[in-house]
């Protein structure tokens, strides 16, 4: 019992420790671009997550599991997906929701069937739609209108060197910590070293988003420009690295991870095209979590259908 608990704690530290390391860079960039509002949002969210986790754990489990860093991770992710100048009560509610409704009732960060950060963000996005999707200007920004809003209205952006550099460095209006593509590329390399298979979900997700953006563009410019805008708008890249790779919600098998990512990508892009929110990736992640057990069954049936044929070919080639 004690050794099981110890190994579980180590595993939890390992996994969430990786996320905390990766999250340092988006946090640093958000503070660089937005200054004190970013610091305040981050601090308030993290403190709320910790307090809710601490008191909730004491109340329900009669003890606090310090090794379970999932509440810290979820709180930071929620804060990074928020606009910098957002009123403090909104990220507070989001963090409280993610801990009290997703983490604690389901037995901790390693067992939650839904991504806590996605649930918390989705909750406040519905409650406070205007506040969550209104962005402060950063140090220098492009026009004060986010890429997501531009796409919603069918706008386009010229793909010149300056704009591309802004996209790569996150120098665009949007959530305070989800803009810098370079950082997310670095995080993907980190995951490639530490948790390679989790990137299957990321690959499936981005692949589906790219194809959807090329086939059903929202922008009235070129398809390629539209695709780049889609990938760099809102929290899409951030979600592909941090939300889709969440340990507890990710399926176990490789084929299921890929299917999960593809499904999430299709739903996300469909919601962007048809839905009511500028950034619906968190809702798509929740639906993908809900459909994940059904996707497991579907992929297994497909593989069972394909595999017998493979075996027959192998047998006949041996003969």
């Amino acid at each position: 019992m004690a050794s099981e608990s110890k190994s579980s704690s180590l595993k939890s530290l390992n996994i969430f420790g990786d996320y905390l390391i990766m999250l340092v860079f988006p946090c640093a960039l958000s503070v660089w671009y937005y200054g004190m509002p970013a610091v305040r949002t981050l601090a308030v969210t993290v403190v709320t997550g910790f307090i809710c986790d601490f008191f909730g754990s004491i109340l329900v489990y009669k003890k606090f599991y310090a090794a379970d860093l999932s509440s810290f991770c979820a709180s930071i992710m929620i804060a990074l997906m928020m606009p910098a100048g957002i009123p403090a009560y909104i990220p507070v509610l989001a963090a409280a929701f993610s801990v009290t409704v997703i983490k604690i009732p389901f037995g901790g960060g390693m067992q939650a069937p839904f991504v806590p950060a996605a649930a918390g963000f989705a909750f406040v996005a519905v409650c406070f739609k205007d506040e969550v999707f209104t962005y402060l200007p950063g140090r220098e920004y492009m026009g004060g209108v986010s890429l997501g809003s531009t796409l919603m209205h069918g706008g386009a952006m010229r793909m010149n060197g300056s704009n591309i550099l802004d996209i790569l460095t996150g120098n665009i209006a949007g959530p305070m910590g989800t803009g810098c593509i370079i950082v997310f590329a670095a995080c993907m390399i980190y995951l490639l070293v530490r948790r390679r298979e989790a990137l299957l979900a990321t690959a499936g997700f981005l692949g589906a988003c790219i194809i959807f953006a090329l086939v059903f563009p929202r922008s009235n410019g070129s398809r390629l420009a539209g695709m780049i805008m889609e990938l760099s708008s809102g929290s899409l890249m951030f979600a592909s690295v941090f939300l889709l790779t969440d340990y507890s919600a990710l399926p176990a098998y490789r084929r299921d991870k890929l299917a999960y990512g593809i499904f999430c990508g299709i739903i996300c892009m469909a919601m962007r095209k048809l839905g009511a929110f500028e950034e619906p990736v968190c809702f798509a992640v929740l639906l993908a979590n809900a459909f994940s057990p059904l996707l497991d069954i579907l992929t297994k049936r497909i593989m069972d259908f394909i595999a017998p044929r493979k075996q027959r070919r192998e047998v006949s080639s041996v003969e």
Partner: peptide, 17 residues
């Protein structure tokens, strides 16, 4: 402030839980 999700089915389900 108010939370409009409570008026939605989702909010009621959380409350029931």
């Amino acid at each position: 402030f108010t939370m409009s999700t409570m008026s939605m089915p989702f909010g009621c389900l959380v409350l029931l839980g």
